[in-house]
Design a protein around this nucleic acid. Structure first.
Lengths: 229, 229
DNA sequence: CGTCCGCTTGAATAGTGTCAAGGTGGGTGG
DNA sequence: CCACCCACCTTGACACTATTCAAGCGGACG
């Protein structure tokens, strides 16, 4: 079996949303503590390692994922089977929201794959639906995450897949540096293949652009960590 | 003043949502008739002619638009001021949803321009908010439209702005033929400039691709109406 | 009737993909 | 521990695609 298609997840714990350290970033920030006392199915806390697959495109599923830390690639295959990264979703983001639609047929419409280490909560659809019913204040929080998905997709259209390749690669690196960098301004290296699937180019062209940026000293990579100016 | 930047709208009537012929396609299909008896601000029924501008990117606004018939281009300018059509939204679609976000600062994040004749209802934000509060069943309807925006954006990424130009143009024409055609299979011609802003190419390249398809007999245009096989 | 705008076409050029070959580094098994 | 292997990255050559610049055409409209 192709390792890239294996789910590579570790169960960490049954989530204790009442005392969650990062709840203020999640959709549950709007809920009172007692909301979590009687939910139908438990919320689990999972971690995925690099390239771990949360779910595949077209696969039936019944979980929505709330990202605690790390970044997830959303991938869509085109008519020829070529895979495109349609956006990167980070902490606070909500994945699998399409399952809430009656038209979705209970299937994920994109694939979700961990880019680096990812730490998240897996929320059963039934639990989310019940919480929404009991606490309508949850709706705006979910809507906000959905709206953010559209905004991120727009950014991909105007910045990452349109225009000359060198500007697309620069925009993509700038995104990684701006959104995913640690306190030292370093972000984890994205593979050339992923970058190619993101900016809509061939691996070779991406490699050449990155080499040019390294020659200029604008991009520096060592030990899987990079900086970009 | 540049005509392209003028709002070109006609007021038709004060909307009577109780007896609206197309309510079943709109977000209001989930509401009972009496919901419309005491709304704070009235919903107006407007039409926009070709290239009429509903709103511009970054402009403050307090209306959400529900499309009754026709198609609207959502346009985003990139860092160099080049405008990209990030999607086409049709009947049943909801525009300006970003105003619901607290982070939006009350401004539209994309421009909306009529592609052909458009017939729509203009819903004051205050009215939408009040209806949502009184009728939480409205939330899923709004969420569904928002989710649809993300799906449309994904389609643009994988089909309209990625890959070889001739496939992008074909995909775009196929979309127009599939989504916007009348009962005779005819759809209204899109200008070369709009097509270029949609598929991310130069006007000249688009013109050449369209000329090639016409030579092959796959695209036929007459009198502003086209068919595509 | 003249102007403007959108469309078309040609030619030169730059950009990008493809194919091919070779390099590098990390991991595995002997 | 070392040799090997494989996945990933790099580089070059070449073909092809798309952009740019330039010129001209035609219809709509004042």
């Amino acid at each position: 079996m192709n390792r890239a298609h294996c789910t590579d997840a570790n169960w960490v714990e049954r989530s204790d949303c009442r005392h969650c350290a990062v709840r203020q970033f999640s959709i549950f920030s709007v809920l009172p503590e007692e909301a979590f006392s009687a939910i139908p199915e438990p919320i689990d806390h999972l971690t995925y390692s690099k390239q771990g697959r949360l779910y595949s495109q077209g696969e039936p599923g019944e979980y929505v994922f709330s990202i605690r830390s790390g970044w997830v690639k959303l991938v869509v295959g085109d008519a020829d089977g070529v895979e495109h990264i349609v956006r990167l979703v980070g902490p606070g983001g909500l994945l699998g929201l399409e399952l809430l639609l009656s038209s979705a047929d209970g299937r994920y419409s994109r694939a979700a794959v961990a880019h680096g280490e990812v730490d998240l909560c897996r929320i059963p659809l039934s639990t989310l639906r019940e919480l929404e019913l009991k606490h309508p204040e949850l709706y705006p929080a979910v809507f906000q995450r959905c709206s953010e998905q559209a905004r991120l997709a727009d950014e991909v259209i105007v910045s990452f897949v349109s225009g000359a390749l060198h500007t697309r690669v620069e925009h993509a690196l700038a995104f990684l540096a701006r959104e995913t960098a640690d306190q030292h301004g370093q972000f984890s290296k994205m593979s050339d293949a992923d970058m190619a699937a993101w900016v809509g180019a061939s691996v070779e062209s991406v490699s050449r652009e990155l080499a040019a940026l390294k020659r200029q000293g604008r991009l520096q990579c060592a030990d899987g960590r990079c900086t970009f100016v």
